[in-house]
Structures are given as structure tokens and as C-alpha cells.
Computed example of a mutant assay.
Amino acid sequence: MYDVVIVEDDFYVANLHKKYVEQLPNFHVVFSARTGAEVENYLASHKQPHLILLDMYIPDVEGVTLLWTLRERYKTLNIIMITAAKDTSTIQQALCAGVQDYLIKPVDLARFTASLARFEMYDKHLQQSQMGQHTLDVLFNLKPVAKEQQYPKGIDATTLNKVKYQIEQSARGLTAVSLAKEVGISRSTARRYLEYLVSVHVLQAELLYGDVGRPERYYKKA
């Protein structure tokens, strides 16, 4: 069970956030403070909570000042800012102070719930003795960088995209001659790209016989 402290001078908002917190099965509010002094006194005489929901505008101290005070005294204290402050300077200071999240009022329930769920995931990962890069990427909400696709010699991504575009535009399919004309490449180059797409099962090729001459190779989507 996660102990949560709310620091919010507006009684109605504090109660609303308490209601939001306690809708979640693993969280409960152990204290609500209206001032910086109240939360400092509570922390000095009680077990450190797992999480503090901190407003920026409180009567006796500037929220950023209180944030840094708490960070200096309690190095591992988890803090989520919930405030109407939207200025970049305040947000930057909060991020530099290592807040878990920054929610702008009024906060809807879905966003609030997502924030606490992310905190819970973060805390569970920290129970491990070690973490690999994948876990750290999850904690920092990073997606792995997609590797650039490698193509065979003679095939480049820019021309291939042009070829694919022409294929999408042609419901009946294309020949190397018609593709070369549309893309502005030689017939042999067009044939090379078409045959590559056949090899990776994007296209299929058919021989069409005319009245005279050799049959023509026709390409359409597989």
C-alpha cells in the first residue's frame, strides 16, 4: 500500500484529489496539508510517505522553494506536482528537482490515474537489485530507436518510395516501361526495383501476351 500526502490549500481540490487517490486499490492518503509548514512538521514526525502531491501555490511558501527544500531533506521522496502553473521557468525547475510528473489543473481523472499507475510501475522496478537498459528506457518513457532498414545494393530508400507510390496509384499494375516513365528512371532501373519488390513478396509478376512481339512482364500488388 502506498502512503500519499497531499499539499493543497484549496479544501475542495484537496478532497477531490483524495477521492481520486483512494479510487485506486494500492493507494491511500495519510495526510492533507494546506501549508508548507504543515507538511514539513508532518514529515519531521512521521514515516516518510511514498508519494507527495504538491501544489505550487500555497500560502506560506513558494511552491518551488518548498519543492527544493523537500528534495534536499528527503533525497528519495517521490513528488508529483499538481498545479495551475504553466510557465516554462516553473516547469523547468520542477523537472530539475526530479518530480515524477507534472499535472496542470484542472486534472481529469484519467490523467491523474495514469500518473499514479506510472509511479507504481516505477516503484516496482526500483525494487529490483539491478536494471538493464530496456527497463531504464521504460522508466524514462523512451522507445527504442528504429534501425534504418538495409536494402540490397542498387536499391535506395528514396527511389523505392517513389516506386511504391506509383504502384499504389495504379490499380491495374505497371510494366518496367510505364514505371520508368512515371518515376523518371531508366527501364533497367525500373525493372530492378520491380523485381526487388517481387522478391520481398510486395508485388507479383505476370507475363501478358500481345498480338505481336515478345510477352510483357506486368507487375501488380501481391
Rank of each mutant, 00 (worst) to 15 (best):
L70T: 04
A114K: 12
L67W: 06
K124P: 04
Y74M: 09
L142D: 14
D60N: 13
L95S: 02
H17W: 03
V145E: 10
K86H: 12
L16F: 03
H134M: 09
G36N: 04
L136W: 14
V30K: 06
F31W: 15
E72Q: 13
S45Q: 12
M56R: 02
N15K: 09
T88M: 15
T113S: 14
A97L: 04
T83L: 02
V39C: 11
I58V: 10
Y102D: 00
H17P: 02
T113K: 01
L43C: 07
I91L: 01
K86W: 00
I155P: 03
G154E: 03
E120M: 06
Q92C: 08
I58H: 03
N141R: 05
Y151S: 03
Y74T: 10
Q93K: 13
H134E: 15
D101Q: 07
K147H: 09
N78F: 04
A84C: 08
Y102A: 05
A14M: 09
N141W: 07
L54A: 10
Q48R: 09
A37W: 10
Q93A: 11
E22I: 09
T35M: 04
A157Q: 03
L126I: 10
V39N: 00
T83N: 02
N41A: 14
L67M: 03
T135G: 08
K47T: 12
I79S: 01
Q23T: 09
H28P: 00
S89L: 11
V64P: 02
D60I: 07
L139A: 09
N41P: 04
D137Y: 04
H50E: 10
D55Q: 01
N26V: 04
T90I: 04
V21I: 13
L54K: 01
H125D: 12
K105F: 06
G98V: 03
T158I: 11
R118K: 15
P25L: 04
P106K: 08
L136K: 06
D108P: 11
I104K: 13
Y151P: 03
P25S: 11
T69I: 10
L136T: 11
R73I: 08
Q48D: 05
I80N: 07
P106I: 09
V29I: 04
V64Y: 05
Q130H: 11
Q130F: 05
K75I: 14
E120R: 08
V21D: 05
A44H: 07
M56T: 04
I52F: 05
Q92M: 11
P25N: 11
Y20F: 12
E38Q: 13
D156N: 14
A110D: 14
V21W: 04
L142Q: 15
A84H: 06
T135I: 15
I82Q: 07
D137R: 12
L53I: 11
V64R: 01
A146Q: 15
R111Y: 02
F27G: 03
W68R: 08
N26C: 01
Y122E: 12
A37S: 13
M121V: 15
A157P: 01
P49V: 10
Q127P: 05
F27C: 02
V138F: 05
K18N: 14
D137C: 06
A44I: 12
Q100A: 08
L43H: 09
D101C: 02
I52P: 13
M81F: 02
P49A: 14
